[in-house]
């Protein structure tokens, strides 16, 4: 039981970082990233590619981070010329292109079957790393959130022409947020790879992106704690349904589908009943203005 709890909290911490990453992009800056699983996948595939070709762990980590930073800017590039619904489709497309490449081009990292990666053998160490990562990322996000940069991002969220009129380059702000957020998600991905010990494309599908979205909307977009709370809830639902499956004897597939369905229903219900989520965005007071 304790082992299981340790693992569950480790996963909550890791996925919370991914939700936090999305929160920076969407909650603070208004970027609708329907391919949020991509930076996570890039972070996981760095180690995978490195392992598949005899590279070291640090090489894998570096590769994952580099791919995420570059990938983020590439995917963001057309955002200035597109309204958010089109750009959302581009981001979705990008995450799917990557997944399909990983599935079909086997020499990269094992294709559909995936690759094994060095595993953190001590679950408590994994937990420690995950919690440490979450804490560090929360502090970073909080620093940005309560700063003039965070304020500017919130203006950008509402009106990018206003930002340009005020003498700032909207794309540069979006690029900065994207790189920071994607690096964040990539770190989570790399940790995930080393905790699970295995990387395969099936873990990085469109469904995963929308589980993160459900976590963020449920928790409250724009509030940092919301990302963590939402992820905890989503993981709880996930785990509960697994227990339900084991207890009721229902087939595994059915339960997996039902879980996805529950997430969908939760997502819709949040919009209908409590749009701001469980932890609403606080009226931001920047440092110097007072506590």
């Amino acid at each position: 039981m304790l082992d299981f709890l340790v693992f569950a909290v480790t996963m909550i911490a890791i996925w919370s970082v991914v939700a936090l990453s999305l929160d920076l992009q969407f909650g603070l800056c208004g970027l609708v990233n329907f391919g949020q699983i991509l930076p996570f996948a890039l972070g996981a595939y760095g180690p995978a590619i490195s392992a598949a070709h005899g590279g070291s762990i640090s090489a894998g980590l570096a590769l994952g981070l580099a791919m995420a930073a570059v990938g983020g800017v590439l995917v963001l590039a057309p955002v200035g010329r597109l309204s958010q619904d089109y750009w959302a489709l581009v981001s979705l497309g990008a995450s799917e292109i990557f997944r399909l490449l990983m599935v079909n081009v086997t020499p990269i990292a094992g294709g559909q079957d995936g690759t094994a990666v060095a595993r953190v053998s001590n679950p408590l160490a994994a937990l420690g790393l995950a919690l440490g990562l979450l804490l560090a990322m929360l502090l970073l996000a909080r620093r940005i959130d309560r700063s003039p940069l965070g304020r500017l991002m919130r203006v950008l969220r509402e009106d990018d022409l206003l930002v340009a009129t005020l003498g700032r380059n909207p794309f540069r702000v979006q690029a900065l947020v994207t790189v920071v957020a994607w690096l964040m998600a990539a770190l989570a991905g790399a940790l995930y790879a080393h905790v699970v010990g295995f990387v395969a494309p099936s873990s990085f599908s469109v469904a995963e992106t929308f589980i993160v979205w459900t976590a963020l909307i449920l928790g409250g977009a724009g509030s940092l704690l919301g990302a963590v709370v939402g992820t905890a809830f989503v993981q709880f639902i996930s785990v509960s349904t697994r227990f339900l499956a084991a207890w009721s004897g229902l087939p595994f597939d059915l339960v997996a589908n039902l879980r996805l369905g529950i997430f969908g229903v939760v997502l819709v219900l949040v919009f209908l009943l409590r749009r701001e989520g469980l932890v609403p965005e606080r009226k931001v007071r920047v440092d110097a203005v007072g506590p």
């Binding site: 304020r151 919130r154 969220r157 509402e158 022409l161 206003l162």
Partner: peptide
């Protein structure tokens, strides 16, 4: 053009 969800200050 303003950021309507932010405060005046």
């Amino acid at each position: 053009r303003l950021a309507r969800r932010l405060t005046v200050i």
